[in-house]
Design a protein around this nucleic acid. Sequence first.
DNA 1: ATATTTATGTTAAATTAATCACAAACGGGG
DNA 2: CCCCGTTTGTGATTAATTTAACATAAATAT
Lengths: 240, 240
Amino acid sequence: MEQPGEIKKVSMAVIKRLPKYYKYLGELMRKNVERVSSQELSKILGFTASQIRQDLNNFGEFGQQGYGYNVSQLYTEIAKILGITTNHKMVVIGAGNLGQALANYTGFSIHGFDIIGIFDKNPNLVGRKINDIPIYPVEDMEYFINKNNVDIAVLTVPRDETESIVNRLTNTAIRGIWNFTPVEINIEDRDIVVENVHLIDSLLTLSYRINESWLQERLLKQKRKDKPFGHGKNTTYMVK
Amino acid sequence: MEQPGEIKKVSMAVIKRLPKYYKYLGELMRKNVERVSSQELSKILGFTASQIRQDLNNFGEFGQQGYGYNVSQLYTEIAKILGITTNHKMVVIGAGNLGQALANYTGFSIHGFDIIGIFDKNPNLVGRKINDIPIYPVEDMEYFINKNNVDIAVLTVPRDETESIVNRLTNTAIRGIWNFTPVEINIEDRDIVVENVHLIDSLLTLSYRINESWLQERLLKQKRKDKPFGHGKNTTYMVK
DNA sequence: ATATTTATGTTAAATTAATCACAAACGGGG
DNA sequence: CCCCGTTTGTGATTAATTTAACATAAATAT
Ligand SMILES: NC(=O)c1ccc[n+]([C@@H]2O[C@H](COP(=O)([O-])OP(=O)(O)OC[C@H]3O[C@@H](n4cnc5c(N)ncnc54)[C@H](O)[C@@H]3O)[C@@H](O)[C@H]2O)c1
Ligand SMILES: NC(=O)c1ccc[n+]([C@@H]2O[C@H](COP(=O)([O-])OP(=O)(O)OC[C@H]3O[C@@H](n4cnc5c(N)ncnc54)[C@H](O)[C@@H]3O)[C@@H](O)[C@H]2O)c1
C-alpha cells in the first residue's frame, strides 16, 4: 500500500542508465554545449527520448518545454542524484595485481573518489606506497576506516579471504563495498551496499554472445527433432 | 511476424543469469552433489524456482519430473550454451596497470580463456613477459590475431587510443572485444560482439545506492513543496 | 503582439519479464 | 506393479519496463 507522500522506488534499470547520462553530459559541457533535448540525447545514447524524459522525471523536473535541458544544470542535478557532489573516501583491501592496478588509476579521483589507504596482510607489501597511497597492515583496517570516515571498501583479496574480510567490514562504519572477488557477498543486517563487478560473469556473457549464432542453429535442429534432449523411460541418473 | 521454426531470441536478462547457474553448478559438482531441484537452486541463487526453470527451458529440457536436474549434465549443457566447451584464445591490448593485472590472473584460464599475447606501443614494454605471456609491438596485432585464430581482444588501452584500435580490430577475424576503456564502442557493420566493463559506471551506481536514503528525503521534501525545481516564467538559460 | 515551432512532463498503451499454478512424468517404496 | 510424493515444463497471470501520444508551456519568428 503506497503511503500518501511516499516516493516510488526507482528501478535498477533506471539507476544503471544514470552514469551514461552523467558521462555524456560531461562531454557536452566540455564542448560548451548549453542546451540539449531528450531527442538529441537519444541519438547518442541509444535510449528513446521518451525513456530519457521518464528516467529524469523520477528525480525532478529538470527541463523546460520548448527549450530542452540546460546541460550544466542537468549535469549538476545528476551529480547530486549520484551522490558525487562531495568526495568519497575509499580504501583498497588486497594490494595484489588488481588492487594495485585500481590504486594506480587516476580516473576515479576525477569523479571525487579518493583512495586514501591500501591494506594487505603480506608484510613485504606493508610500508610500500602505490601511487603515493600507503599500504597498511590489514589489522589496522577497521580502525583506519572509522577514524577517517571511509565510505567505500574496494575488495581485491583472494576468493577465500573474502568472507572473513566482509565480516570485519560489517563492524565498521563503511557504507559500500565494491567487490571484485568472484564471491557472491550477502550481508544480512547492516545497511552496507554491495556492488559486484564479477569479471568472470562478464567474460562468460561475451562468450555466450560470440557463440550465439551457433547455438541458435543447434536449438533449431533440436526443435525439429522435437526432443533430442528428453529422457526416455527408465533413464537412470543416480549411480547407487 | 514469427516464422514457423523460428527461435525466440533469448533476453539479456536470462543471459546474465547463466554465469550464476554455471558457477554454482560447478560448486555443487565439486561437492559431488548428483541432483538438484529448481527449488534448491532458488534458495542459494535468490531467483525464484519458476524463473530458473523458465530460463533453462529457453535452451532445452534438461530436467526430469520428480527428479530435478542432474548436476553434471546441466553443468555441461550450460557450458555448451556459454560456448566454453572449447578453449578461447585472447589477447590483451595495452600492457598497462589493468592489462598486466588481467594477464597475471589465473582465473580466466580455468574456464578455458587463454591469453596468448599482449600488445603495446611502448617499446620499453615490448619484449618483456607478463605471467609468461610475451608483449609484442602493437603493429603486429592484426597479423597475430588472424594467424593464431584469436577469439577475444581484451581492450586496456588509454581512452583516446580506443577508437583507432577498434577500427583496426574490425579488420581482423576477432569475434569479441572485452572493453575496459570508458569509451562506448559501437561497431556498425561487422559481427563483432562487444562486452563493456565500464568500471566507472559500476562505481557511480554504488555511489547512488549509498546516497539513496538521503536522496529519497530530498525528493519527498521536493514533492511537498510541489515544484522547487520548476522554472519560473521568463527563465533564461541562453546567454546570448 | 501574436503565431508557430519546439520539446517537456505525464498519462496511456504496448511490450517484455517474472511469477503463479497445475497437468503430466518420473523415482522410489511397498 | 501400482501408488504416492516430487518436481518439471508450460500456459495463464501479474508485474515491470518501455514506448507512444498528447496537452501544455516556453522559445522563437514574424
Ligand atoms: N587480477 C584480475 O585480473 C582479476 C580478475 C577477476 C577477478 N579477480 C579477483 O580479484 C581478487 C584479487 O585478484 P588479484 O589478481 O589481485 O590477486 P593477488 O593474489 O594478486 O592479490 C591478492 C592480494 O590480497 C592480499 N591478501 C590476501 N589475504 C588478505 C587479507 N586477509 N587481508 C588483506 N589482504 C590480503 C595478498 O597479500 C595479495 O597481495 C581475487 O579474488 C580475484 O579472484 C582478479
Ligand atoms: N587501471 C584501472 O584500474 C582502470 C579502471 C577503469 C578503467 N580503466 C581503463 O582501462 C584502460 C587502461 O588503464 P590503465 O590504468 O591500465 O592505463 P595505463 O596507462 O597504465 O596503460 C595503458 C597501456 O596502453 C599502452 N598503449 C597506449 N596506446 C596504445 C596503443 N595504441 N596500442 C597499444 N598499446 C597502447 C600504453 O603503453 C600503456 O602500457 C584505460 O582506458 C582506463 O580508462 C582502467
